[in-house]
């Protein structure tokens, strides 16, 4: 008797678990030529709320990990994608209508991106922190601190490479994220969640939803417990989203698909942008100011 193939059910990734959407809804993911490839969860605003809650819960301990440890974990992610290269390239080839060769090249570039960003975890402070000269008896210094929880919304991620780039650039300095996988890259994105789940990434640091941007965008922009919003691609309601983001003075970043894919994205200023600068004025006693009277 012929064997019945066991098909994978793709679910959301929230707080290190793989729940179905609480709404019970789904959409049909299609490949590049419009063929049905799978039923995906159509995440609701409540799934987004749960994801933000998980992100908030995990954020401070993620930030408190040593930079070196965060780097190790990112490197581990790269190792684990490498081990599943074939699976990812097959998925990507199907999702994006690429040849096997093109798909494999994209997976390899994605792995290299993660390695690139993993290297920055313990160098970021060295490059961007400073001791500042001031005209009073203070030791004055500035350091970077992660923004906290970041919501990332794309009109639709055009590739796995792009998705991985945004995730690794955002989490490396200690941010937790909630990211909506695009309709065209949701299979590979949610397979990537399986990599995260066994790479020692703490639960809740990365939360991945699948669904429709136009349905969730206002909640991404308005949630009071999200500290920043990254809008990838073109959003026709951008002005409305930016207005909603003002309620808790969220930082809003708009990145184009092209700039993320370009080699210029391998640039520490993108990482710096997702951090706040904290400047400390530390009083110092000036006991040696008296000079000799000889």
């Amino acid at each position: 008797m012929a064997r019945v193939e066991v098909l994978k059910t793709y679910k959301l990734f929230i707080d290190g678990k793989f729940p179905r959407t609480e709404s019970g809804r789904y959409f049909k993911a299609k490949d590049a030529v419009g063929e049905f490839i799978g039923n995906m969860c159509l995440a609701s605003r409540k799934d987004f709320r749960n994801a933000i809650k998980a992100a908030r819960k995990s954020q401070s301990s993620w930030q408190d990990r040593s930079a070196y440890n965060r780097g190790q974990i990112l490197y581990r992610i790269a190792e684990n994608i490498e081990a599943r290269k074939k699976e990812f390239s097959d998925l990507i080839a199907k999702e994006q209508g690429l040849s096997q060769k093109e798909a494999m090249s994209q997976v390899e570039s994605a792995i290299d991106r993660v390695i690139y960003f993993s290297g920055w975890t313990d160098k970021l402070q060295q490059v961007f922190s400073s001791v500042n000269p001031v005209a009073s008896n203070h030791f004055n210094f500035s350091i970077l601190e992660p923004m906290g929880v970041i919501s990332i919304l794309s009109d639709s991620f055009t590739s796995f490479f792009e998705f991985i780039s945004v995730v690794s650039a955002s989490i490396l300095s200690g941010n937790s994220i909630v990211i909506l996988a695009g309709e065209n890259a949701s299979l590979s994105a949610l397979t990537f969640a399986e990599v995260l789940a066994h790479s020692d990434v703490p639960n809740g640091v990365v939360n991945i939803l699948s669904g429709k941007a136009e349905e969730l965008s206002s909640h991404f922009a308005s949630h009071m417990d999200s500290n920043a919003l990254i809008l990838v691609g073109k959003h026709t309601n951008r002005a409305e989203l930016e207005t909603l983001a003002t309620e808790n003075v969220k930082r809003v970043f708009c990145w184009s698909h092209e700039e993320i894919k370009a080699s210029k994205f391998e640039n520490p200023y993108y990482i710096k942008a997702l951090n706040e600068v904290k400047t400390t004025w530390h009083p110092i006693e000036n006991i040696s100011s008296s000079s000799s009277t000889y």
Binding site: R45, R49, H219, S222, H223, M224, D225, L244, E247, N248
Partner: peptide
Amino acid sequence: TGFYQSSNY
């Protein structure tokens, strides 16, 4: 308000 809230406030 219609907005999800944060414990910060």
